[in-house]
Simulated scan of single mutants.
Amino acid sequence: MPDFFVSICIPTCNRPRLLEAALLSCFSQPLLPAEILIGDDSQDRKSAAIVNRFSRKTDVDIKYWKHSGRIGQAANLNWLIDNANSQYLIFLHDDDRLCAGAIKILYEAWLKYPGAQCFYGKQYLTDCIGNILLDRTEGWNHRYFRTHEFSGRQRSNLSAALTQQIPNNGFLIENELARKTRYRSETEIGHAVDADFGIRIALAAGPHSFVYVDRFVSEYRLNPDSISQSTTLNRREDVLYEYIEQLKIPAGDEQARMGFLERIAVAAALDAARAGRRRSAIRIIFSPYYKEALLSRWTLYRLLCIVSPAIGERVKRLLTQINPDLGGDGERQWRHFGNGQMKK
């Protein structure tokens, strides 16, 4: 077997039990990683105790750092990249899991496609306690072009990243490429650091370096306290929107760029309004990428937020009290499904 060494990088913060499940998925692999690196932003030592327990039961090298203060997801990931020794890396969120055989699946793709630099597969969606949501899983992977007809080397790295075919974690990447690219801070790009990283590794990688494997590799947990599921945190997707909007790309990737902007325009408009960037919010709402009806209650809510976020939130609460169905997961649906439609 050719030399194949992989480091799994796990940033964690105040989720000891979910971290334990993530680690169990790593140690259940038929092909084990060379090392597991954990950067801990937690306020207590509960995660450290779990890591110590695993360390006593395995021959896999576990490297653990307890940061003295919370350094944030991007800085935590960069810390792990800088300290990883393997040729390849797999990033794993502390509330997600690798599927059984994930490393072996990615290894076999590495053998089949020499010279490629990034490998990834399908994701299961799970609820907060880890139950797989089969109906949402199918739509999720179809939405992000993770279906059989796209198997193998991708025509364009950038189109694969802009369509978000590359998932937010659970992918295999060349260490050198990750170190050259690095994650940008939340101050620079907002909280969508995973999507930004995928796009920038696509720009930095060699031609046809992205490989999609039509098999399940990871589980993505819809965790209520995660950044992606929050309806109150300002993720500043307006910053990411403007970066993609201004990016100089080949004509062949333009359709993928348009699709990306359409997926995040609604959330970006609200984030700009909440950040006090009124002109930016108005420009996004009246752009061709904003697909919510201009006369809808949700657009009215965002327009009110441009005038005053506090007034907008009060009107939203009032409408929700009158008719609870008006509250729901409006923002979350847009962030994850793009068109406001989600099966109940």
Rank of each mutant, 00 (worst) to 15 (best):
S280Q: 15
I244R: 00
P324D: 08
V266N: 00
S280L: 13
G276E: 14
A265Q: 03
L270P: 00
L233N: 09
C305R: 03
V239D: 01
Y212W: 03
N223L: 15
D238W: 00
G259E: 13
L303S: 07
A256V: 01
D325E: 14
K316Y: 11
A204M: 05
F216V: 08
Q255N: 11
V315K: 06
D225N: 15
Y220W: 14
Y243C: 06
R335E: 00
E242D: 13
A310D: 06
T231V: 12
L240I: 04
S226P: 06
V211A: 11
R278P: 07
W298T: 09
Y212N: 01
R335P: 01
A202M: 07
I244T: 07
L240A: 03
E245V: 01
L270D: 03
R274V: 08
R279P: 06
I264V: 11
G330A: 06
W334I: 06
P207Q: 03
Y212Q: 02
E313M: 07
N323D: 13
I249P: 01
G327W: 04
A281E: 00
F286K: 03
G312S: 05
K248Q: 15
R332D: 01
G330P: 01
V315H: 05
S308P: 02
R302H: 06
N323H: 14
I322T: 04
R332K: 10
A273W: 06
P288Q: 07
V211Q: 12
L261K: 02
R314P: 00
G330Q: 05
K316R: 11
G276M: 12
K316V: 01
I311V: 12
R274P: 02
A275K: 05
L295D: 15
A275G: 11
I285H: 13
N234Q: 10
A265I: 03
L203N: 06
D225I: 15
V213Y: 10
L233G: 08
D329P: 02
Q333A: 14
I322S: 03
F286Y: 13
S296N: 07
A273T: 10
R277H: 15
A267N: 00
S287W: 00
A204W: 01
A205G: 04
L303A: 09
L318N: 05
T299S: 08
R221C: 10
D214W: 10
F216H: 12
A272C: 09
I264K: 04
T231F: 04
D225R: 15
R263I: 01
Q333F: 13
D225W: 10
V217C: 10
E254K: 15
I285C: 13
R283G: 09
A310P: 04
D225L: 15
K316G: 13
L300S: 12
A267I: 02
A251N: 08
K316W: 08
R283Y: 05
I285S: 12
V217A: 13
R215M: 11
S296I: 08
I311A: 10
G206R: 12
Y301P: 02
S218E: 14
P250Q: 06
G328C: 02
A265S: 08
F260L: 08
I306K: 04
R335G: 00
R297F: 10
I201N: 05
R257I: 04
I282V: 11
A281N: 02
L294G: 11
R314F: 08
I284P: 01
L300M: 09
D225Q: 13
E242W: 06
L304G: 02
V315G: 07
V211G: 11
E254C: 11
S228A: 13
W334G: 05
L326C: 07
